[in-house]
Design a protein around this nucleic acid. Structure first.
Length: 432
RNA sequence: CUGACCGUAGCUCAGUUGGUUAGAGCGCCAGAUUGUGGCUCUGGAGGUCGCCGGUUCGACUCCGGUCGGUCAGCCCA
C-alpha cells in the first residue's frame, strides 16, 4: 500500500481494538453531547465545513496563528472569475456567527443557544493530541451578557465529561478585559516588556506591537523574569469587566465548580473579551487542553451584525477520547449494539426460505444478517459467534419441510424448535 | 521548519559478533466434528525485512541518503 491517509488525519474504525479511534466511542460521545446540550436548551446548527477565508481573517483574527500559518486553504477553479479564496474551518465560532446573522436569527427571541460538532482543520505540525484534521464539540450563546451564561457554558462542558466518568480536570479561568480597559493594560504591558525586548524571542518582538497580550503566554520565553513579573490583566479591568469577572467566580462557586485563576491564559484568538477559560488534563502530554473558550462580545459586530455579546467553547473530541483511553475508562462504551439474529441455512432448499426470513426480520426492526460466502454450517455458526449475535436461526432440510426453524440462544447455548411464522415474536418476547 | 527516537506478516513484536529455507503470539481460513459458535488440537494462507545506494564472498543486521511514523519546540482542540 503506497497511499496513506494524509498526515495528521485519522481513520475512525469499527472495533474496540482501535481504542480512541473506535467509531462506537465516537457515536457515544456525540450522543452524550447532544443529550447534555438538549438538557441545557441548546439547538443544533450545522454550518458548512468550508467558508470564505475573509470570514476567518475577520472572525478569528488576522494576527492569530490560525490565520497566519494554519489555514487549510481550498483552491477554487482557477477559471472562475468570481472564485474567492476559501478555507476549511479551523474552528466553529466564526461560521456559526455567520450563519446566525445570514439567516436572520437575531430577530428570534434571544439569547440564541447553539450547539454544533464535527471536523475542523488546521495545517500545522502533528504530535500527540494535535492533528490537522480533528473534531470539536462546540456550543455558543449569542445575545446574553450575563456572567451566569459564561458559568453555564463551563458547567455544560463539565457535565459532558462527567457522564464519561472523567475526573481530575482542572478548570482555569481568566479575564482579559474589553476594548475599554484593554488599551491601558496593553500600554502597561509594553512599558513592562520594552526594556527586555532584546532578550525575548523574535515572535515576541513581533507580538510586542501587533498583539502584546501574547507576550505573557509565550512558552519559549516561559521562565523569563520579565514574563514572570508581567502586569496582570485582572489588575486593569474596567468596572464593567470587574463586575462581570466577580459575577463569574461567584456563579462558579455557587455551582460547586472548583477552578483556578490562571492569568497567563489569553487565548490565541483575537476576538475574546472578558472571560477566557481552558479545561486541562495532565495525561495528554504537551497538548493538555481538552477544551477552551470564552466570551467574545465584539465578534458579532465585526462579522457584520449589531453589537451582540457571545460566549462559547470548543472541545477536542480526539483529546477527550484519548484521555478516557489513558485512564482506562471504557465503562461508558460497554453496552455495544449487537446483532439480534444470524440466519444460518443448509442446502439449496433452505436458502430462499432463509433470505425471506432475513428480510422479514429486518422489516420488523430486528437486526439480522446471513452468510453470503457459501460457508459450512460450522463456519456460519462461528461467524455468527464472532458477530456477537444474540440468536442463530438454523434452517436445514428438516426444518424447512416442517415449516420450522431451530432457534439457538447464543448466550445460553439453548436451542428450541419454532414455527417459521412465530420466529419474530419468539425473538421479540425473549428480548424483554 | 528544527531535534530525538522508530520503520520485520492484518496487529503487537522476536531475529544472537553480518551466514544462506526470516520466526512467535494474536487475528484470518480450513479440518478434527459430512447439522451447531465460544474451549482444545492440527494444518494453511499471508512478508519486495519502508525505499535507493554503498561496504562485503555474503546485509533484516554495518554505513550513507531518502521516504514514512512517533514524540517534542512554536501554538492550541
Amino acid at each position: 500500500m503506497s497511499i496513506q491517509a494524509p498526515r495528521g488525519f485519522n481513520d475512525i474504525l469499527p472495533g474496540e481494538q482501535y481504542g480512541w479511534r473506535d467509531s462506537y466511542r465516537w457515536q457515544r460521545l456525540e450522543e452524550i453531547f447532544r443529550e447534555v446540550a438538549r438538557l441545557y436548551g441548546y439547538q443544533e446548527l450545522r454550518p458548512p465545513m468550508v467558508e470564505y477565508v475573509d470570514l476567518f481573517v475577520h472572525g478569528v483574527g488576522a494576527t492569530t496563528d490560525i490565520v497566519t500559518k494554519e489555514m487549510f486553504n481550498i483552491t477554487p477553479r482557477g477559471d472562475d472569475p468570481d472564485a474567492r479564496r476559501m478555507a476549511m474551518r479551523p474552528e466553529f465560532t466564526a461560521g456559526l456567527v455567520r450563519a446566525y446573522l445570514e439567516n436572520g436569527m437575531p430577530n428570534n427571541p434571544q439569547p440564541t443557544k447553539i450547539f454544533a460538532y464535527g471536523p475542523a482543520f488546521r495545517y500545522e505540525n502533528v504530535q500527540k493530541g494535535r492533528f490537522r484534521g480533528f473534531h470539536q464539540l462546540d456550543v455558543e450563546v449569542f445575545g446574553a451578557q450575563d456572567p451566569a451564561v459564561d458559568a453555564e457554558v463551563i458547567k455544560l462542558g463539565l457535565d459532558v465529561v462527567a457522564r464519561l466518568g472523567l475526573t481530575g480536570l482542572v478548570v482555569s479561568v481568566n479575564s482579559i478585559g474589553c476594548p475599554n480597559c484593554r488599551p491601558r493594560y496593553r500600554e502597561a504591558l509594553q512599558n513592562h516588556f520594552r526594556p527586555h525586548l532584546g532578550e525575548l524571542c523574535e515572535d515576541c518582538n513581533t507580538r510586542f506591537e501587533r498583539n502584546p497580550l501574547r507576550l505573557i503566554d509565550c512558552k519559549r520565553d516561559a521562565g523569563h523574569p520579565a514574563q514572570q513579573s508581567a502586569p496582570v490583566t485582572l489588575d486593569y479591568l474596567c468596572d464593567d469587566c470587574r463586575t462581570h469577572w466577580e459575577g463569574l467566580l461567584s456563579h462558579l462557586e455557587a455551582m460547586g465548580i472548583p477552578y483556578q485563576i490562571d492569568t497567563r491564559i489569553v487565548r490565541g484568538l483575537d476576538y475574546y473579551t472578558k472571560t477566557v477559560f481552558e479545561v486541562l488534563h495532565p495525561k495528554l502530554g504537551a497538548q493538555s487542553a481538552l477544551w477552551g473558550g470564552g466570551r467574545y462580545d465584539g465578534l458579532i459586530e465585526v462579522v457584520g451584525g449589531k453589537p451582540t455579546p457571545g460566549v462559547g467553547f470548543g472541545m477536542g473530541m480526539e483529546r477527550v477520547l484519548m484521555v478516557l483511553e489513558e485512564e482506562g475508562l471504557t465503562a461508558p462504551f460497554a453496552d455495544r449494539p449487537r446483532l439480534d439474529v444470524f440466519v444460518v441455512t443448509l442446502g439449496e432448499a433452505a436458502r430462499p426460505v432463509g433470505l425471506k426470513l432475513l428480510y422479514e426480520l429486518r422489516d420488523a426492526g430486528i437486526s439480522a444478517d446471513i452468510d453470503y460466502l457459501g460457508r459450512s454450517l460450522k463456519a456460519q455458526m462461528k461467524y455468527a459467534g464472532k458477530q456477537n449475535s444474540r440468536y442463530v436461526v438454523i434452517l436445514g432440510e428438516d426444518e424447512v419441510q416442517r415449516g420450522e426453524a431451530s432457534v439457538k440462544n447464543m448466550d445460553e447455548g439453548t436451542q428450541e424448535s419454532v414455527p417459521l411464522d412465530q420466529i419474530i415474536s419468539h425473538v421479540r418476547r425473549a428480548e424483554v
